[in-house]
């Protein structure tokens, strides 16, 4: 058994009505929150994020939310310690990020409101380290006899 989904569970009763009943309105609230954060990004350049884990959503709500945002044109794949994806939604500047671990389990999910997802840009010191690395490599190659 490698996945939780493979554990044979027979669902006897539905999820408590109280937790699904209130969510429909929740999707609208999320959309309004995204819009507010977009305004903030446009006005002051301040990026924002919404943690999907903090919002209890039924699969239906999630679909509803994804549908409302629509598909976008950019897809980013991060291949460090498991494959994570960041998709731009139909609303530009709104990114749907899903971080996964080595086993492919979802470990975090966000809606990011940013020009570029914050995880992407590289810090100056890293740029310098990269440059150093390249120079060291080039020097090494130059010293290689017979090249």
């Amino acid at each position: 058994m490698s996945r939780l989904g493979e554990i044979p569970i027979r669902i006897v009763s539905r999820t408590p009505a109280a937790s699904t009943g209130t969510i429909g309105a929740g999707v609208t609230a999320i959309l309004i929150e995204i819009a507010t954060q977009l305004d903030r990004l446009a006005d002051g350049g301040e990026p924002g994020a919404i943690d999907l884990r903090s919002l209890p959503m039924s699969p239906g709500d999630r679909e509803q939310l994804l549908k409302a945002l629509g598909p976008g044109e950019v897809t980013i794949t991060l291949k460090g310690d498991g494959e994570s994806t960041i998709n731009e939604t139909g609303i530009q500047g709104v990114w749907w990020s899903e971080y996964r671990d080595r086993g492919g389990e979802l470990i975090a999910g966000f809606i990011e409101i940013a020009q570029v997802p914050a995880i992407l840009p590289v810090e100056p010191d890293q740029l310098r380290r990269g440059a150093q690395q390249l120079r060291a490599g080039a020097a090494g190659a130059a010293q290689q006899p017979g090249n």
């Binding site: 919404i50 991060l78 971080y99 995880i119």
Partner: peptide, 22 residues
């Protein structure tokens, strides 16, 4: 372990601990 991978884990942890997303 790349910086991005580390950020990924820290972010996941913050999320798990219900800390603010950033």
């Amino acid at each position: 372990v790349s910086r991005r991978t580390f950020i990924k884990y820290c972010t996941a942890m913050a999320s798990a601990l219900a800390l603010p997303p950033l």
